[in-house]
Design a protein around this nucleic acid. Structure first.
Lengths: 215, 215
DNA sequence: TGCGTACCGTACCGTACGGTTCGGCATCTT
DNA sequence: AAGATGCCGAACCGTACGGTACGGTACGCA
């Protein structure tokens, strides 16, 4: 597993009290459990044993609370550096496979799905504020890892591509296809996650067929 | 253009009055313009010059109205049969490219995005009812066209694959990547749609590299 | 002419939510 | 001891929404 949950580290990183982190944790739980409708200020206050007054003092308003939730959650996902050592065709394939599995784990996680649903629902009425925040915070980390991996592959003459972004887009599409959207629409996660391993292998194979350096 | 808008045909198909179709049209307009928040019963009634009483008589309740909107909108998208004539490598590529463009046109259309946002927002709190409906109605049509195209390609010995579903999943991922999600999150559609043509060509190239019959 | 039907516009009701205010309690500071 | 601070719990306010009820109107039909 290459993504590490760091407990309350997200709180400290964002300049939040331990208590505030705990409140955000409960709020995320509420959101996961009951969707946006369950994320009421009164509900969060009750679930976290704090007062609405404190919520408004700490986070400003409901949108501030949501933004804090996104930032807090994003702070919990960290990637480990890809070992910059010698990269063989075999280790590259392994790294790509691990990346695929971790990507799916993150995208299809309860909290990620709930936050994406929330941001998408908000996207229509109020600019792309939350959407951009989610995209930035969430994708930056994982995209950086992918970019590093691809770049390492190119340096080792195992991959050939002009644009790393384009290659990453292709890799992403091969791995995810429409799974993310289907999950967002409410499809049962269990079924798809179980049978994903072979799918991930096929995606990696396809990616290597497309971008593997001709030997 | 292979997807045809059929005006009010969707209404008749679903057993709806002309008037009811017009109401759904206004409701869709409201949804596109202002998101879920704008889709209030009073708002729809005002915009469509009808009474709330009629809305409830026709559609039961708000969810019924939304379901009717989805069904109505899905009824407007029709695919044309792929000409079953002789399929050459060149025409296959052309058909795939046209499919890619049409797929993007549909997925990134105003109404489609708005309905997907609505269904995703609803997905958390209330089963997957709307999500499944949207998936069934919207995807069935376009998936059927893709399946027919792929099958024709295999019959002409231009494509080689074991599972048509899997091949379609790959094609979908190559074409769409994460564009759909980014749009749902509120990214500006104009920019991505403009520069899509070369992307679509690359996706088709990649697909043919993966699934083109050897030789 | 009278009656039924379908519809509109508006008013209404209950509820729920975001946000504010206030009294009270515990802890800390001086 | 006395004030200040931070917080909780609850009450409160304005608003907005889903859903219902009612009066009024146009039209078809006997």
């Amino acid at each position: 597993m290459h993504f590490v949950e760091q407990g309350r580290a997200g709180a400290a990183a964002a300049g939040l009290t331990e208590r505030q982190g705990a409140v955000l944790e409960r709020a995320l739980g509420l959101l996961v459990e009951g969707g946006e409708r369950a994320l009421t200020t009164a509900g969060v206050a009750r679930a976290a044993n704090c007062s609405k007054e404190s919520l408004y003092k700490w986070f400003g308003d409901r949108d501030g609370l949501i933004s804090a939730m996104i930032t807090y959650q994003a702070g919990k996902v960290r990637t480990v550096e890809v070992s910059a050592g010698a990269l063989t065709a075999e280790t590259l394939r392994k790294h790509l496979f691990a990346f695929a599995c971790d990507l799916i784990d993150v995208l299809l996680g309860d909290v990620s799905l709930a936050l994406n649903r929330l941001a998408i629902g908000q996207a229509s009425r109020e600019g792309a504020g939350l959407g951009r925040l989610l995209q930035e915070r969430g994708r930056r980390q994982i995209g950086k890892r992918a970019a590093a991996l691809l770049e390492a592959g190119r340096k080792a003459k195992l991959l050939a591509f002009d644009s790393a972004d384009e290659a990453y887009g292709t890799l992403y599409g091969l791995i995810v296809s429409d799974m993310h959207l289907r999950m967002l629409l409410g499809e049962d996660a269990g079924a798809l996650k179980k049978e994903f391993s072979p799918r991930a292998e096929k995606a990696v194979d396809a990616f290597l067929t497309l971008y593997g350096a001709k030997g």
